[in-house]
Structures are given as C-alpha cells and as structure tokens.
Simulated assay, not measured.
Amino acid sequence: MLVSCELCGTKYRVDPKRLHKDKVKARCSRCGHTFVVRRPEEPEPDDFDPSLMAEEETRPSEHEDEEQHDADAAIPVTRPAPQVLRPFTPRERSASKRGILFAVLTIVLLAVAAATYYLYSKGLILQEKDKVEPSAVTSTGMPQVTIDPDIRAYFLENMSAGQIFVVEGKAVNESGGPVSFVLVEGKLYTTEKQPAQIQKAYCGNIMSREELMRLDMTQIQNVMMNREGKDLSNVHIPSMGKVPFMIVFYNLPELSLLSDYSVEVTNALAEK
C-alpha cells in the first residue's frame, strides 16, 4: 500500500503485513516529520479471538523499534522536485545594456569636460567673457561658479522607489570672493536631445550609498534641498574653493529612451 508524508508529500510503499497494529507512527526519511500509518481494514478471520486483540492492545510497545525500522526502511516512490525562488526584477533583462550605455555616456562626458577645462585653463575659451567681466560675475549678476569635470554617475536600488540614478561632483567658486548657497541642476536627455527629467540640489549635501538605498524619496529630496549644506558646507565658500554636490533622479523613464545627462550651476550668492 502507499502512504504519504503529511508535511512534504513524499510517498512510500509499505507492506501491510509488517504493521503489527491498526496504526503505527512513522518518520519521513526526507523531512523528519512523524505521521501515523493506518493498517488497511481487512475482514476478520473465522477464528478471530477477541482476547488476543485485548492482549495485543494492553501489551507494552515491544514492537516500537521494529515499527520505526519499517518506516525508515520504506521505499520512497515520488518526491516533489525542489524549487528555487528568486525575486522578480522587471528590468533585469536589460540591466547589462543599461550599464554599458551609461558607462559610455559617462566616459564621453568626462572626456568633453576634461577637454573644455584644458582649453579654459590655456585661455583658449571664455577669453572675451573674462575681459568683459573681470570680477568673475555672470551677466545675470551671479558669481562665477562652475562644475569640476570630475563627475561620477551610477545606479542604485532604493527600497521604496526602485531604481535611482545618482550624479556626484563638485562645484568650483571661480569668483574673486566667497559665495554661498550654490544650487545645481541636473538633466536627463532623450535620444532626441530633449530634457526627459530635471532635478535640482543644493551643494554640500552628500549621502552614503546605504542612505540612498534605505531612505524614501521624500527624505532624500529634503536632504538635497538643504540650502546651507551639511555642516554649513555650502556657506562662505572661498575663492577657488570647491563644494561637493549630489543629484538623485528617481521615477526614471524607460532607459532605452535616454542618451545623455548634464549638470550646471543655476544659482549662487556672492558675499559682500
């Protein structure tokens, strides 16, 4: 006859003749669960003696070891196939393509920024602007603050928002005096060179990768919009001084539609 483990469903073939009682305890050799095996009902023989049954019921469990041996020696017929569970990640199939795309974009942007910085340092660009505005103040009256070409960008998985895109860098105060409250703006562009997403952040607000993955986006947004920066790092930045920034993009569009990103300074306050 066939019996099944109640816990894991493993089936065993057991010889009813080896069962010495109407029901015995058996242990599953696969999961260790103990279950009851009942002897199939059979018609009583003509010479059935009720006194023998009573004696059998009141006799101590002298067959306990043998019953355990019967269960352990049972031959498994079928076992459920083990299943390996893994979390579903909708973007997993194109993760490698996204990584390659943004790695190439980052390298290109860094190369362009490095070339621009080199040309500027050699006086080959912005010469006319420097002559017109020797005080390093833009036409809008904002002090001259630029983006250092050493920029990093990477993806992270946030616990509440899913995938986020982080851009890190430094702003450089190229004006003649101290400045405060430097605000930067990052943009993601589509393959058609149109802005797909815009995000602003004040300089001086840097978060660890653990915080970026753990905090919800409201908390991250509040950190980015701290005007003075962490420990007042965005206040009284000296001439040629640098202050770090971090821009976090979330609710990302389909990455196959994106081709580039940029960062620029949109506001700064000159101190008198």
Rank of each mutant, 00 (worst) to 15 (best):
M240S: 11
N234E: 04
P244G: 10
G241L: 04
Y261E: 05
V248N: 14
L255H: 14
L252Y: 06
K242Y: 03
I237F: 02
L252H: 12
Y250P: 00
L255K: 01
G241F: 09
N234Q: 02
K230T: 15
V243Q: 11
V235N: 00
I237L: 13
L258S: 01
N251Y: 03
S259P: 07
H236T: 11
L232W: 12
H236F: 08
S262L: 06
G241A: 08
K230W: 04
K242S: 14
N234F: 00
N251K: 12
E254K: 04
K230R: 04
F249Y: 14
H236V: 03
S233L: 03
S239Q: 15
E254S: 09
V248S: 13
V243C: 13
I247F: 06
S233D: 04
N251W: 00
M246G: 00
L252G: 11
I237D: 03
S262N: 12
S259E: 14
P244F: 02
Y261S: 11
M240C: 02
S259Y: 05
M240Y: 13
Y261H: 13
V243P: 09
S259M: 03
I247K: 08
L252W: 06
V248K: 04
S262Y: 06
E254T: 07
V235P: 01
K230E: 12
P238A: 10
L258P: 02
P244M: 01
L252C: 04
